[in-house]
Design a binder for these strands. Sequence first.
DNA 1: CTGAAAGCGCTTACAG
DNA 2: CTGAAAGCGCTTACAG
Lengths: 322, 322
Amino acid sequence: MTCTLKQLAEQLNVSIGTVSLALRNSPLVAEKTRKRIIELAESQDYVQSSFGRALQSRCSKLIGVLLPTLTSSFFNELLQGAGEGAVSSGYGLMLGWITEDKEYTNPQITLMLEKEIDALIIASHGKNFDFYANRFIRRNKPVVYCNGSPSENCSSVCTDDVLGGKLAVQALAEYGHKKILCAQYYSSRWAGNQAAASQYGVQLVPFTDYNAVLPLFAGDRDITGIVCHSDEGASLVMHTLRHHGYSDTGDFSIIGYNDLSIASHPEFQLTTVAQQRKNLGSTAVEIALEQLKNPGNHPTHRLLDPFLVKRQTLNPARRRKK
Amino acid sequence: MTCTLKQLAEQLNVSIGTVSLALRNSPLVAEKTRKRIIELAESQDYVQSSFGRALQSRCSKLIGVLLPTLTSSFFNELLQGAGEGAVSSGYGLMLGWITEDKEYTNPQITLMLEKEIDALIIASHGKNFDFYANRFIRRNKPVVYCNGSPSENCSSVCTDDVLGGKLAVQALAEYGHKKILCAQYYSSRWAGNQAAASQYGVQLVPFTDYNAVLPLFAGDRDITGIVCHSDEGASLVMHTLRHHGYSDTGDFSIIGYNDLSIASHPEFQLTTVAQQRKNLGSTAVEIALEQLKNPGNHPTHRLLDPFLVKRQTLNPARRRKK
DNA sequence: CTGAAAGCGCTTACAG
DNA sequence: CTGAAAGCGCTTACAG
């Protein structure tokens, strides 16, 4: 049922080579011949099989994407950005899941090598997966880390987390907050937090465990602002503080990270630092395609700017009653 | 750099055919020869290129998955289920996005046809995409709808939404609720809602717009239960009713659908009807592989049971003050 | 047990 | 402008 070049050629009494050229609009083929060929091909919904072509060109026009097995909606948009970038350049996306368990991950890597994906994107949460990446690099297949910890041999695209950290503290500082509880989870964000703090003359009280937030906050009336490492974390803090009688539009201001759907929920209306999720994916594809074009080039590292999404949990600092 | 059968054969002074057989553990090859071959192959991380093989076998060992462009976390788990099912059978997943916009979707379909995916899974929200499906069916490639509206030519796996509708109303009925506000969005769920209502002698008040919930609820003190079409919808209702002074652990009971992360958030603790998300994906793959094995078979249709996840918003009916 | 050869669907020099 | 042929990496009868 599948239609091949050979079948088209036989039906039209031309050679296979001619059909091949005609379908790629080669000027070598006479206008008349080409028309006949293209017409027949379209009428049969002819789609070229990539097998034969790939065997020649040594490229599959497939980009592999490896995700952590987390099921966060963050990756949906990242993936969609990658997908749109790939498709617009004629590439398809092959999907796999990556964990530290080699038994789980390696078969998927092997599968991608069998399909001879042209490049690999590792979407990650800061972990280093060079062990897997090397199986591709050894074969000169470019690897791009997307939001992971960049290594020497691989290109990368990340959110500028230093800037992200700055934005959060800066926003609070500009609203008059002088003492801020601040999640210390990722070193680059924390660096940004500190930079903004010293620039604005603001004091940071770090925490690494969300259970510590309530006692720290309740114990110090100078603390009026809170910076969290995620929207989920921020919403939990809001929940806890509300239930202890604090108002999130008066007693404290709070800032999340990521702008996931929970942040815009009317129950929270959380001010947050957003990442360019779709752009992370499409930029990763962009870098991969560049590397494919210029195989000699050194790995590229690109940073995307995060931005503040202001909602109702950012308010002027106010002395609290308790 | 990529290692081929030919290269292995030359290094060992055997023929290509022998290497090919040895790597597939054929008993035709002498134990000693096989060992030498396998050792060399492993030492070079030889991975067979699928191009040559696919050209012979006419199958790519690739399953296509088409998702709607919604970015709901629902699809993350579905996809992961599909991925695990596929990998465990030696198949890879090729990803694409499907909308009603043919300009957007058709290039992705063409790409999948070029890669000659062996089967297609359409993960959908009840929409019918037969126009696209037919491009595969015409080529005898099985198509499986995953949570979409099943059509004649395609297999399908869906959540049993009639049962889902029943579970929600039944749960409220068993807690003594006699009059229930009920979202009327999907016909099968509504059928389930009605079936349970008549079985338990409960009265249903349908709504099709969430803005109608507050006035309906406030205007009728007999209404104590609410059934929503999603967790998101339920959380919005909770938000609204709370702000009008109603307590979600006393004045009303409310049930969502899907068990997404917002349902388990401490701020909501929503009782909800959960779908077997991962199973939807892995079952879709399972059906696709069955169809591949038995090409003559009629399309299969499978239903997965949803189940109730009880949290804090399901409580005994209580006469409200206002 | 092993090798030589044909062929899967394509592309690409090379003739004519 | 068109055709015949080689070759990409593999598998699979067929000889020996």
